[in-house]
Amino acid sequence: MMRSLLWKDFRLNTLIWRIGLALGILPYLGAVALAMLRDGPSWPGTMFWSAVLTQAALLSLAGSELTLTLLGGNVIACERADRSAEFLAYLPPSRAQVLGSKALVSLGAAALIWVPNLLIADLLAPALHDGSVDIAALQQASLRWGLAATGILLFGAGWLGSALLDSPAVAVGFGFGLWIAVIASFAASTNTLGWPTAERVAAWYAASSAVLGALCIGIGSCLYLRRIEP
């Protein structure tokens, strides 16, 4: 049963997989292009690669935030947009199973985005490192928390929009909208209230984004499960 659902949900997001692949790979292609431009026909040294790959990994994660937003907004709403949800509604799978399949596919996508990039940034790049540049500064590990939290928020808001609405585009818009609202409220509050340090702001931003994102996923899921009409 789940096999059918997983296959179906995988196929439903084909366009998003293609976009995701492009966004994920682009920084690495950029790195290769940079190498070509800089050193001509010869191949650059490993230190170069160490630095550049670390940057590319970060850019890949950043670009993939779009992928996650698109996924969140599309994953439920696409079946409502073309009314195929009505077909699924009279088949045996429970709403929990249908939703579970979408969650698994989304989790798989998130893993595919993060795991390779983390491996490159934390295993490959350091392995190529020769100590001449401070890699830690390049890794900007603290930025990762921010990216992860933003990812959860963007995906979660899209997921909520997807559960409420029947247009994937609007749901994606809702995803971005909520994120922008969070950013704006942080900007406004730091201006008016004043925050101690940049790190604190970053920490608060990450924490609240993650929590808000998780909340959105929870609410969206509950709403979907309790609805009777497809």
Binding site: D82, S84, A85, P93
Partner: peptide, 26 residues
Amino acid sequence: GYVPETHQIYRWMRVGEVVGFVKLLY
């Protein structure tokens, strides 16, 4: 078994894929 008035079977699937999809659900 339910046959609705208007069908909303996934339009992007091939007939064989539809059958393969539904088969595992029963």
